[in-house]
Amino acid sequence: NDEAKKEAEKLWKNNKSEDEIKERLERAGISPDEAEQWLQELR
């Protein structure tokens, strides 16, 4: 999970869309709710 979150953070810094980041997190096995929460922390 931490690995996926690091990846999400990297994508965020590269200005990827939130949808793309969420999709990537969900593919890594993170629930949509958790993915949404993680994005809010990044904002």
Rank of each mutant, 00 (worst) to 15 (best):
R24A: 15
N1A: 14
N1L: 14
E36C: 11
L25A: 03
E18I: 13
K16E: 07
G29K: 01
D33N: 08
E3R: 09
G29T: 02
A28H: 10
E9L: 14
E41V: 12
G29P: 02
A35Y: 09
W38F: 12
P32A: 11
I21Y: 03
K6W: 08
K13H: 08
N15L: 06
R43K: 11
E41K: 13
A28D: 06
N14T: 09
A35D: 00
L25M: 07
K5P: 01
E9V: 11
N1F: 14
D2H: 12
E36R: 06
W38E: 01
I30N: 01
K5H: 05
N15G: 15
A8R: 03
P32G: 07
E34A: 07
E7L: 15
E34F: 05
R43I: 08
A4L: 15
E18Q: 05
I21V: 06
K5G: 01
D19Q: 13
E36D: 08
A35Q: 07
L11V: 02
I21F: 04
A8L: 07
E36V: 05
K16I: 14
K5Y: 14
A28S: 06
E41T: 12
E18H: 09
D2K: 10
N14K: 08
L25N: 01
L42H: 04
E3G: 08
K13V: 05
R24M: 15
I30L: 10
D33A: 12
L42W: 13
K5I: 05
W38S: 01
K10S: 08
R27C: 12
K13S: 07
L39F: 06
A35E: 00
E20K: 03
W12R: 00
S17P: 06
E3C: 15
E18N: 05
S31L: 07
A35N: 01
W38G: 00
E23A: 12
E18M: 11
E9N: 05
E9H: 11
L42Q: 04
R43P: 01
L39S: 02
Q40L: 12
E41M: 13
R43V: 05
L11F: 05
R24N: 08
D2M: 13
S17Q: 04
E34V: 14
A35R: 03
K13D: 03
N1I: 14
K6L: 09
K5C: 14
E18Y: 12
E26Q: 13
E9Y: 15
R43H: 04
R27M: 12
D2P: 08
N15W: 06
G29Y: 02
A28W: 15
E23V: 06
K13I: 08
K6R: 12
E20C: 14
S31V: 02
K5N: 01
R24Q: 13
N15K: 09
L39M: 08
W38M: 07
L39N: 00
A4T: 06
K22C: 07
I21R: 00
E23S: 10
N14D: 13
E34P: 02
R24C: 15
L42G: 00
G29F: 02
D33P: 04
E7W: 14
P32K: 11
L39R: 02
A8N: 03
E41H: 13
E26M: 15
R43S: 03
S17D: 07
N15Q: 06
K6S: 07
K10T: 10
L25G: 01
L25H: 00
R27T: 07
D33T: 08
L39V: 06
E41G: 07
E34Y: 04
W38Q: 00
A28Y: 15
A28E: 08
S31N: 08
N14A: 14
N14F: 08
E23Y: 08
I21Q: 02
N1H: 14
L25E: 00
W12T: 01
R24H: 15
G29I: 01
S31Q: 07
R27D: 07
E26D: 06
Q40E: 10
P32I: 06
E9G: 05
W12F: 11
D2V: 12
D19C: 15
L39P: 00
N14I: 07
P32F: 07
D19T: 11
E20P: 02
E18K: 05
L39K: 00
D2G: 09
A4W: 15
S31Y: 02
K16V: 15
A35W: 08
K16N: 07
E3T: 10
K6P: 03
K16D: 04
K6Y: 07
I30C: 05
L42S: 02
W12H: 03
E41Y: 14
R27P: 03
P32R: 11
A4V: 09
E20M: 05
E7Y: 14
E36F: 07
K13E: 04
